[in-house]
């Protein structure tokens, strides 16, 4: 089977060329890297473009670097590169573990993190943990480059702040978080619920409230207030029960193939508790 409609393929060699193509072709063009989301949608006829701008040949979008307390992930970096990259494994083992469980090995070999974020499919793994870690996206366009918190970049289902002439150049993730974990429940090809927790324990007691972010349930990641855990111990059942309740109430699930609203609220509570408790094992 061919894709249902024909398109011109552009292979810019530099970010500047890609931005110029974006400006020239406008909505007739899609940015293309791994294709794991885009090609599926094009096969189904849900999306249709006259032009694809392939970003994989741009050297400036490749590679992962770690400097100044931040990990910089180029837009053409695949999930598999992230799960195996020594800097990611060393500095952000929770992110490496998340990447190791994205979709399946074939999707991880082709798909990119930037593509995942730009597509903004709500049922995705990376956004919750990256939001919890305070990640930013570096966008480049005709007017130059700008940075946005990932939390602000993700607007809704399949909707981001990416401008018509912009592309993602890199994702920047602060390193040095004491602990960062992600726990999900998944029986289909995408997660039903995923919860990220970032926080610090001193002597078995939470030093400040952990950051808790729920992904895959609402259209975009949702923060859960976890003040009840500030100063709480890992075996404080009352505090964890309150966290589970707060998490279940923070989301607004819809009934779908991944489960009913009630079921997803329940999963969210359970996974919030498990993710935060897992900070004790980091």
């Amino acid at each position: 089977m061919m894709l249902p409609s024909d398109f011109e393929l552009h292979r810019p060699a530099t970010v500047g060329e890609a931005v110029a193509l974006r400006a020239e072709l406008g909505e007739a063009a899609a940015l293309y890297a791994g294709g794991t989301e885009l090609l599926l949608a094009m096969k189904l006829g849900v999306l249709d473009y006259e032009h694809l701008i392939d970003l994989k040949r741009i050297a400036g979008l490749r590679g992962v670097t770690c400097a100044g307390g931040e990990l910089r992930i180029g837009a053409a970096v695949t999930h598999r590169e992230l799960e195996t990259h020594p800097d990611v494994v060393r500095e952000l083992p929770g992110l490496a573990a998340l990447e190791r469980a994205v979709a399946n090995v074939r999707v991880r070999a082709a798909g990119t993190l930037a593509g995942n974020l730009a597509f903004a499919e709500p049922h995705a793994d990376p956004p919750a943990l990256l939001v919890a870690l305070g990640a930013r996206v570096v966008l480049v366009g005709g007017e130059g480059s700008r940075e946005l918190a990932l939390e602000d970049f993700l607007v809704g289902a399949y909707e981001t702040e990416l401008g018509e002439d912009e592309l993602i150049e890199a994702i920047v993730v602060p390193v040095g978080a004491p602990g960062a974990v992600y726990r999900k429940f998944q029986v289909l090809e995408r997660p039903a619920v995923g919860v990220a927790a970032v926080g610090n324990l001193v002597g078995g007691v939470f030093d400040g409230a952990p950051t808790v972010v729920v992904g895959a349930v609402d259209e975009r990641p949702v923060r859960v207030g976890a003040e009840m855990l500030d100063g709480a111990a890992l075996d404080d059942e009352g505090a964890f029960a309150a966290l589970a309740e707060a998490a279940a109430e923070a989301v607004e699930p819809v009934d779908d193939l991944s489960g009913s609203e009630d079921y997803k609220r329940h999963l969210t509570g359970v996974l919030a508790k498990r993710a935060v408790q897992a900070l004790g094992d980091v």
């Binding site: 089977m1 393929l9 599926l40 096969k43 399946n104 074939r106 999707v107 090809e189």
Partner: peptide, 28 residues
């Protein structure tokens, strides 16, 4: 050709050594 959506693995080939779903990879 089977699921045609990168889920089942029946179309797996190695591209530069890595497994990919040939059903959702452009020939180019």
């Amino acid at each position: 050709p089977s699921c045609e959506m990168e889920v089942c693995g029946a179309c797996t080939v190695q591209l530069d050594g890595l497994p990919v779903s040939a059903c959702t990879t452009l020939a180019v």
